[in-house]
């Protein structure tokens, strides 16, 4: 009973738009004889999906690895007590950073006129000549790492903190040194959290719109930007079905990824008791 306002709110402003999306995606159209849902995953549109998946996968993988090492490193710092505090707080901000400010920052650092580009050229490293630009595949991946690594940190920190010292000590008593402790105890216990973190990062990268949009040229191939291309404001491009279909596929992918994430999270929580 008390959940009625919440349910109504979520239903009206989240569920209903999502359902409408699917309704619009499967709606028959005159100028095409195959369904938009089918068309959205064929030809160049399929390439866009694969490109986006590739980028999301790579940025999630790198983000997960770097983020895990960052967490492990921060866990080992006890002495200046403010280090962990500072990294946590900064990660909270950076994980939610994106869009225009982030693109600005990277353009100012690594753009053709960027500070770091210039500094590297002093040392004889020609970043642009080497084919790097902030808006190609590698560039976007790098920019995404700016919010992916902190997100991974935030997800894994509680898991690392949940590793009880008694587990390490019990393992040592039973004959497992540091290496065997990590192989048999530490990593297996962290595994659900790490894998879950990777999935969350993947979903995060796949659905990032603002950053992709701000890095215009290279971002244009990414699905979120493609969706906007077909459904710009209130104008009718004639291919709006395709935009809806892409968004629908995106939600389907997110349901799969986030579902797996929630399952892993549940498992990790169970072990913590």
């Amino acid at each position: 009973m008390g959940l009625v306002p919440f349910a109504a709110f979520v239903g009206l402003f989240l569920i209903w738009p999502a359902v409408s999306l699917f309704r619009l995606a499967v709606r028959p159209t005159r100028n095409s004889n195959i369904s938009a849902m089918r068309e959205a995953v064929t030809g160049s549109y399929l390439d866009s999906f694969l490109y986006t998946i590739k980028l999301s996968f790579l940025s999630a993988l790198l983000g997960a690895i770097c983020g895990t090492f960052l967490t492990a490193a921060v866990m080992r710092v006890e002495r200046p007590a403010w280090v962990r505090q500072a990294v946590s707080s900064f990660a909270g901000v950076a994980a939610n950073l994106g869009g225009i400010p982030l693109a600005f920052a990277f353009l100012a650092a690594l753009g053709t006129q960027g500070l770091v580009t210039k500094a590297l050229s002093w040392f004889g490293i020609d970043l642009i000549g080497a084919g790097f630009t902030i808006s190609n595949f590698a560039g976007i991946t790098l920019v995404y790492l700016y919010f992916q690594i902190p997100l991974m940190f935030l997800v894994t920190l509680p898991a690392f903190e949940g590793l009880r010292p008694t587990w390490r000590e019990a393992a040592a008593n039973l004959g497992a040194g540091p290496t065997r402790y990590w192989r048999h105890i530490g990593l297996p216990i962290l595994a659900p959290a790490l894998l879950g973190g990777f999935l969350l990062l993947f979903a995060n990268a796949f659905s990032a719109y603002a950053t992709a949009y701000a890095l215009s040229s290279g971002g244009a191939r990414l699905i979120p930007v493609q969706i906007r291309f077909f459904l710009q404001g209130n104008t009718i491009t004639g291919k709006d079905n395709l935009g809806y279909a892409m968004a629908a596929w995106m939600i389907i992918l997110m349901i799969a990824v986030m579902g797996a994430y929630l399952l892993l999270r549940k498992r990790a929580e169970q072990w913590q008791r």
Partner: peptide, 11 residues
């Protein structure tokens, strides 16, 4: 997280 902003606004 399942229905990202871009999908939400389009829907």
């Amino acid at each position: 997280y399942v229905i990202p902003p871009i999908a939400l606004v389009v829907g």
